[in-house]
Design a protein around this nucleic acid. Structure first.
Length: 909
RNA sequence: GCCUCUGUGGCGGAAUGGUAGACGCGGCAGAUUCAAAAUCUGCUAUUCGUAGGGAUGUGAGAGUUCGAAUCUCUCCGGAGGUACCA
């Protein structure tokens, strides 16, 4: 076939599939399997061939799973709210709705070009009001829930009200405890507001002036915004925050149940940053200073308190601090002695309590600080002799090492940070002969008993800042009354749609930043009635006046674009449901996995701590409230490797779009200017302007050949560089297998060359495909094609079935021809069950048996597979090649068998 | 600094304790052709040898084992993540 014929054939097969409605997935008696790609953001430039690694992989898996008799949920929607669309809209002065629709249309066409077997009826966008109605609904659930720390799960806020009203529970530090209370109605309402999973708080936020919005901690890297790399500053603002920290333990511990790459699990654990230690309280004239330490046994070695430059006591004391300085004294809780308080550069407010107890002898940063500012040293841990010798200063003699360490630890070159026995355990009422581990345990107990400290677990994870000062996002389902009290909107009044016709640009007035929705004068205030459950039912203009109605102001911030991607996988299961996020029947049917709702999730590692953490959090809340059947969203996660490609930059260092580049003799020139360009590799994409539209590649080589080429380049998880020099091999294979099967069809072939080879290949490929090992699967198909001259028509169908997930058009095309001859009932090849291998046909009669002598191969014998050990020894004794290396005394004779077939012999002599 | 991954021919890669380099690209030789492309056949890790054959070889070094690319330890290089984390 030439290129035109391939193209025509592929188009006609596409038509056939469309007419056969093959990819519709409805609830049935078949076992379900849920395959999911990361939610794509429809950007203006669309997809490049790098994105296809993941998409082709899931498509192959979906086709394979369907052939194995599964009902596969495989769909794709669009994560279409968010900053880039809005930025583009502002630049071009078009409504983001319009650009979003254009981009989605373009991306759908690109996906269509790859012949991905999505169920297109299940597609949606996060910007559809029918979808974001349920995003808002989930927010109302977060707002109306709290975390029950006793049962370690979310509960409706009304349960908390009941508990507090019954007077058997009370609240301390935001935690429920079993202790009677005397709360007034007003106090109960206040406590409830303080415990909601979604709450409002006036906090220091990451404000990005260039973007005109705040960002979550996860969206800021090195003081710059992740989107666009703009500077970010701290600024106090009243914002919606989600209490993700309550889930820190579950988010951490449940990771071990997941079938995820270990590096992603580690990254999430690091991000959560669980650290067990002790809180210790130090009194000062400014009030109590709470510190967090993981080394409580060094408490007698504390010689100063280090606090951050924005620690709350500084404000109390009226001190502005931007350099390291001594600001006063604290009282050591055990010795009652005065120790200085210093502001430091190395203690940051964001971690722990923003204050540390400094032990210069046993912490390197404290050591350096104390040296710099001439602060006292006190050692409390016995450093071993070797360490002392290595770290001593020259003036100390070896005989006095330990005495010096006791008296003058500042004379040593660094702090001793390891765990070792204490000098004076009796200070904690501990015997000297106790092990180090137990000593530390006892210290913690001592501190708790003396009410000096409290065992705590500290997390690096912060609550999730959830407001954005943007137009293009989901409006919050929240209104405020005249006194500023918040109410969630009653379910029957959702969705709250965005006002359509108005100026959506952000207010870049930096001092008093108002969200763009403040400009929607009609939209932002609304009539409503407070219902019995505490929510507000809003009234439209046509509703008659109600005596109880009030005027409410809407929340003007919108949600970040993570909101829509936190639960989209659930929506595929029942995308058109108007009465719930998805029906319980659909959720139970499609989430049949014990752990995660989605069986197979494929996407890049860049979302390790953003989307994957947020989505797990929402899912856990929904699970606790009984809305989803599984404890986790994603069972198995696969990170496809990225695609790199040559990028071209001009003399000023700007990247030139590959459309404007011409290659001559391995040199690159800009077409529009003729300038010679630098060639360097880079990740394919917008940044390097080296993205290649997959449609171009498909047009040039054919869809099947392109798909096989991308999959054959490397294992799925591995990065690769875009290189078409190898694609010739795929074309050869494609033409060769086409010609071979076509010939078999022409001859109505009755026999297969080597049935054993065929059945071995079926076994091998079935196993490899189950693990998404596509490069080796394709290699096995090539080898099968190389080794056999002909296949019977029945066996040809088996070969085509194996080829189908990779090269679906060619396989379908040839199958349709066989179908005409053989009168097969199945309309399309995918409807035939995946081929089974015949165990009787798996084994060859003979096998090559390598003979090792002292670990080196000296001969290879051709033996029957069921040969007995005695016969093998007999054959070896006759081998001249082996005889040269066998000395008279054989110490060991090792014959290894697999499935009773001998695979190797090793003789030790 | 810490964490995770990774290191195999000229290139992409295969082999997860049992013949290292499957399969593909490239290269070499041959067939076909007026010729070229395409196609087909054979060879193609390095090295010594005319050859039969030998030696070496999976970043480096050690170890476990009858046997190690594969397991363990130390070191070196590459990719990604992350941090004054108390």
């Amino acid at each position: 076939m030439n290129q035109i014929q391939i193209d025509q054939m592929e188009q006609s097969i596409k038509k056939l599939w469309k007419e056969s409605n093959l990819y519709k997935s409805e609830i049935s008696s078949k076992p379900s399997y849920c395959i999911l790609d990361f939610f794509p953001y429809p950007s203006g430039i669309g997809l490049h061939v790098g994105h296809t690694i993941g998409y082709i992989s899931t498509d192959i898996f979906a086709r394979f799973k369907r052939m194995q008799g599964n009902n596969v949920l495989y769909a794709m929607g669009f994560d279409s709210f968010g900053l880039p669309a809005e930025q583009f809209a502002i630049q071009t002065n078009q409504h983001p709705e319009i650009t979003t629709q254009t981009n989605i249309k373009n991306m759908k066409a690109q996906l269509e070009a790859l012949s991905l077997s999505h169920d297109t009826d299940k597609s949606f966008s996060t910007t559809d009001p029918k979808y974001y109605k349920w995003t808002q609904w989930i927010f109302t659930k977060l707002y109306n829930s709290y975390f029950n720390n006793i049962e370690k799960k979310a509960e409706n806020i009304e349960e908390l009200r009941k508990k507090l009203k019954s007077k058997t529970f009370s609240v301390e530090d935001g935690e429920l405890i079993e202790k009677s209370n005397n709360y007034s109605q007003k106090e109960i309402s206040q406590l409830i507001n303080e415990m909601r999973l979604a709450y409002l708080d006036d906090i220091e936020v990451n404000w990005c002036p260039m973007l005109g919005t705040v960002l979550a901690n996860e969206e800021v890297k090195d003081g710059k915004s992740e989107q666009g790399n703009h500077p970010v500053e701290k600024r106090p603002m009243k914002q919606w925050i989600l209490r993700i920290t309550k889930y820190a333990d579950r988010l951490h511990d449940q990771l071990d149940q997941l079938n995820w790459p270990s590096n992603i699990i580690t990254m999430q654990k690091n991000w959560i940053g669980r650290n067990e230690g002790v809180k210790v309280y130090f009194d000062s004239k400014y009030g109590k200073i709470e510190i967090f330490t993981t080394r409580p046994e060094t408490v007698f070695g504390v010689t100063f308190i280090g606090i951050s430059h924005n620690h709350p006591i500084l404000q109390k004391a009226g001190i502005k601090s931007d350099k390291e300085q001594k600001i006063g004294y604290a009282i050591h809780p055990l010795t009652q002695k005065e120790i200085p308080i210093w502001t430091t550069d190395y203690v940051i407010q964001e971690y722990g309590t923003g204050a540390v107890m400094s032990v210069p002898a046993h912490d390197q940063r404290d050591y350096e600080f104390a040296k710099k500012h001439n602060i006292e040293f006190k050692s409390v841990i016995k450093a071993p002799y070797l360490w002392l010798k290595e770290n001593k200063s020259e003036c100390i003699s070896d005989s006095k090492l330990l005495d010096e360490w006791k008296e003058n630890p500042c004379k040593f070159k660094s702090a001793f940070e390891n765990k070792a026995p204490l000098f004076a355990p009796q200070q904690f009422e501990i015997h000297e002969d106790m092990s180090v581990k137990n000593q530390i345990k006892q210290v913690i107990q001592f501190l708790e008993e003396n009410k000096v400290g409290k065992k705590t677990t500290n997390y690096r994870l912060r609550d999730w800042l959830f407001s954005r000062q943007r137009y293009w996002g989901e409006p919050f389902p929240i209104v405020f009354d005249e006194s500023g009290n918040a109410y969630s909107i009653h379910e029957s009044c959702l969705p709250i749609t965005l006002p359509k016709q108005y100026d959506f640009k952000p207010a870049l007035n930096q001092e008093n930043a108002e969200p763009p929705l403040a400009k929607a004068k009609e939209w932002k205030s609304v009539r409503g009635i407070v219902m019995d459950d505490g929510s507000v039912k809003t009234l439209s203009d046509s509703d008659p006046k109600n005596p109880d109605e009030q005027i409410f102001k809407r929340e003007l911030n919108t949600m970040p674009n993570w909101a829509g991607s936190c639960w989209y996988y659930l929506r595929y299961m029942d995308p058109h449901n108007d009465s719930s996020i998805a029906s319980q029947e659909a959720l139970k049917y499609w989430s049949c996995n014990d752990i995660g709702s989605v069986d197979m999730y494929v996407g890049g590692a860049e979302h390790a701590v953003l989307h994957l953490l947020y989505a797990r959090f929402w899912h856990m809340v929904l699970f606790d409230l009984g809305h989803v059947p599984n404890p986790e969203p994603f069972n198995k996660l696969v990170n496809p490797g990225m695609m790199t490609a040559d990028a071209y930059s001009n003399s000023r260092g700007f990247y030139i779009d590959i459309e404007d580049v011409e290659l001559k003799n391995k040199s690159a020139f800009q077409i529009s200017t003729g300038e010679e360009l630098n060639i360097e590799p880079g990740k394919m994409g917008k940044r390097y302007k080296n993205g290649l539209d997959p449609r171009k590649a498909c047009d040039k080589y054919g869809i099947d050949i392109f798909r096989m080429h991308v999959m054959y380049m490397a294992p799925i998880t591995q990065s690769r560089s875009w290189d078409v020099s190898n694609i010739k091999g795929m074309e050869r294979f494609y033409r060769s297998i086409h010609a071979k099967i076509a010939k078999c069809i022409q001859n109505s072939e009755k026999s297969t060359d080597n049935p054993t080879k065929l059945h071995q290949t079926i076994k091998f490929i079935t196993e490899e495909m189950s693990n998404m090992r596509y490069n080796t699967s394709i290699a096995a198909l090539i080898k099968l094609n190389n080794d056999a001259e002909k296949f019977s028509l029945d066996d040809s169908v088996k070969v085509l079935q194996m080829l189908y997930p990779f090269a679906p058009h060619l396989s379908e095309h040839l199958y349709q021809e066989i179908k005409l001859i053989n009168n097969i009932e199945h309309n399309c090849i995918e409807q035939i069950e995946w081929p089974q291998y015949d165990p009787n046909l798996l084994q060859d009669d003979t096998t090559k048996l390598p003979i090792n002598i002292n670990g080196k191969i000296r001969d290879v014998l051709e033996v029957s597979v069921d040969i007995v050990d005695e016969e093998i020894k007999n054959l070896i004794s006759k081998s001249e090649k082996a005889a040269k290396y066998i000395s008279s005394d054989i110490k060991k004779y090792i014959i290894i068998r697999k499935n009773n077939k001998p695979i190797i012999v090793n003789i030790v002599c």
